[in-house]
Amino acid sequence: MSQSNGTAQKGRTLKFHILRFDPQLKGDKPRMETFEIEEQDSMTIFIGLNEIRKKYDASLQFDFVCRAGICGSCGMVINGRPDLACRTLTNTFPDGEITLLPLPAFELIGDLSVDTGKFMRNMSERMENWIHEEPDAEPRKLTVLEEKMDPDVATEIYELDRCIECGCCVSACGTARMRKDFLGAVGFMHVARFEMDPRDKRTDEDWYDLIGDDDGVFGCMSLMGCEDNCPKDLPHQNRIAYLRRKMVSAGT
């Protein structure tokens, strides 16, 4: 995880080595290209890539939206590890060499841009990431007081609801690389979030149907790339272990 050491190194030359490939263009082949730019105070990879696009190559593709570390658009492999590019300061690279690759495990759009959106929508549909009320529940009137919730439970749900679907966990996952339909830590985190939500009435059997196989929680090889690379420091290891225990008892 990158963190600022607070020392500005204005004037240093940074070398960005970037994977270039546009699958939309017939005959285009993957290759590495290097761009050199001058480092500025408080420079992030977001600022650096935009400068490269403006000064050297306007065709360079990458995705940023919030540029504040909260929207999950800019996951990429930075010097070998998946992370959010927008909040990675260039002064965290002592030799000024920065190698950028698109996140693996997602469809490539071009250069550093990948289609995480399609993956995440499929995951949400598959896990039905919404509150399931009792099938015969009457819709709650909006004029009446909201249903009460234990304040500590609300806080715990928020802890798991902080996932920003950046895809770093899936890219860092050994199983996801071998098994196309493996749910991945992002899916488990959402399941864990809804499983603990008292408003969601799904039973252990329902959850077992969703994740009780090798594409689900039993496929995890416990390599914990998710835990090591989650930009939001979510408790993946703990929640996967919890779900696995729960599913073992639900399945027997």
């Binding site: 919404w130 509150i131 709650r140 009446v144 909201e146 249903e147 234990d150 304040p151 500590d152 939500d197």
Partner: peptide, 19 residues
């Protein structure tokens, strides 16, 4: 506005609660 927030409470927003 009170109706909108209460609707979101039924849709899963984990609003911080009173202790």
């Amino acid at each position: 506005a009170p109706k909108a927030i209460r609707e979101l409470a039924t849709w899963g927003v984990p609003w911080s609660r009173i202790k």
